[in-house]
C-alpha cells in the first residue's frame, strides 16, 4: 500500500506554507483519512508549534532517517484527531541530515502502516530540503500571495515540479498541481492595489484550488497552536475547508472573494 504524497511548497518564505500544511493535514483527517504531516525544514522546526504539539516532540524526522528511533516512536499523535500524526523536523544545523534514500524509506513505511495521505511541509527556497520535500510527491499545493516576488517564485516552483520530481523523471504522469492563493484582501483588490485571483491565474497559467482571505484569525490560531481550519467561525478556516474538499475531488464554489459591504457609518466616515 502506498500513501498519496502531497507537498506544500512555494519558493518564497512567509507565504503560509506551514499554516496550509497544518490545515490541509487536519482537514484530510477530519474527512476520515489517516494522515501524517512531515516538517522538512531541517534546522527551523515550526510545524509542531502550529499543530500545538511542540512539547511532545521526543524524536524527529532525522532520527528516523538515521535509525536512531523507529517511525512509531517519532510520530506524534494529534490530540484532536486520532488518525492524524505529526513528524517534526530536526533542529540540527546539518543541512545534509536528510537523504533521498532516507526520505523514500520513511514514505514507504508510512504507506505500509496504512496512511492514506502524507503532507510534506517544504522549507522555503529551492535547495536540498525543498527538493526532497517535492521529489516523491503525487500532488503539489503551491502557496502564493498576491504579490510580485511570491508570484514569480511560484512560477519557478511550478517549473521545478514538472521537471525535478520522481514522477517527471520516470515519466509517470505529471504531479497534480494545485495553486492556493493566501493572504487575499478583496477590499484592496477592489481598488486596484492588489493582484486579483484572475490576474494571478493569468500570469501563472493555472487555476486556483482555493483562495484564503487575509484574516486576523490565522495569527490567533497560530498563537493558540490550533490549525485555523478548526476555527469554523473564521473565513480563513472555512476557505481552508473548501480547499481540502476540492483537493478530495468535491466541487465547491469560491467564497470570500468580494469585499464585505460597508455599513452606513463606514460609507459616511470612511474606514
Amino acid at each position: 500500500m502506498t500513501a498519496e504524497i502531497i507537498v506544500v511548497t512555494s519558493g518564497k518564505g512567509g507565504v503560509g506554507k506551514t499554516t496550509t500544511s497544518a490545515s490541509l493535514a487536519t482537514g484530510l483527517a477530519m474527512a476520515g483519512k489517516k494522515v501524517a504531516v512531515i516538517d522538512f525544514d531541517v534546522g527551523l522546526r515550526n510545524l509542531d508549534l502550529i499543530m500545538g504539539c511542540e512539547r511532545r516532540v521526543v524524536y524527529d524526522f532525522v532520527n528516523v532517517v538515521h535509525g536512531e528511533a523507529t517511525l512509531k516512536q517519532a510520530l506524534i499523535k494529534d490530540k484532536r484527531y486520532e488518525n492524524l500524526y505529526v513528524l517534526a523536523a530536526s533542529q540540527t544545523r546539518d543541512k545534509d541530515a536528510l537523504t533521498q534514500e532516507g526520505v523514500e524509506k520513511v514514505l514507504e513505511e508510512l504507506g505500509k502502516e496504512g496512511f492514506d495521505y502524507v503532507v510534506c511541509d517544504s522549507p522555503a527556497g529551492i535547495e536540498k530540503g525543498a527538493h526532497l520535500a517535492m521529489y516523491f510527491a503525487d500532488h503539489a499545493v503551491v502557496v502564493v500571495n498576491p504579490e510580485v516576488s511570491s508570484v514569480r517564485d511560484s512560477d519557478r516552483i511550478l517549473g521545478l515540479l514538472s521537471s525535478k520530481t520522481r514522477r517527471a523523471e520516470r515519466g509517470d504522469g505529471a504531479i497534480k498541481q494545485h495553486l492556493l492563493l493566501t493572504r487575499y484582501n478583496p477590499a484592496r483588490v477592489a481598488v486596484g492595489e492588489m493582484l486579483s485571483v484572475k490576474d494571478v491565474e493569468e500570469i501563472l497559467g493555472i487555476n486556483v484550488v482555493g483562495v484564503i482571505p487575509e484574516s486576523e484569525n490565522v495569527l490567533a490560531a497560530s498563537n493558540a497552536g490550533v490549525p485555523v481550519i478548526l476555527d469554523d467561525n473564521s473565513h480563513a478556516g472555512q476557505a481552508y475547508s473548501d480547499t481540502v474538499a476540492r483537493i478530495l475531488g468535491e466541487e465547491r464554489a469560491m467564497r470570500f472573494l468580494d469585499a464585505p459591504k460597508k455599513g452606513f457609518f463606514q460609507r459616511v466616515f470612511g474606514g
Partner: peptide, 11 residues
C-alpha cells in the same frame, strides 16, 4: 492603484 503595474511586470 498599482496592481496593473505589478501584473504587467510579472507577465
Amino acid at each position: 492603484p498599482t496592481a496593473a503595474v505589478a501584473k504587467e511586470r510579472l507577465r
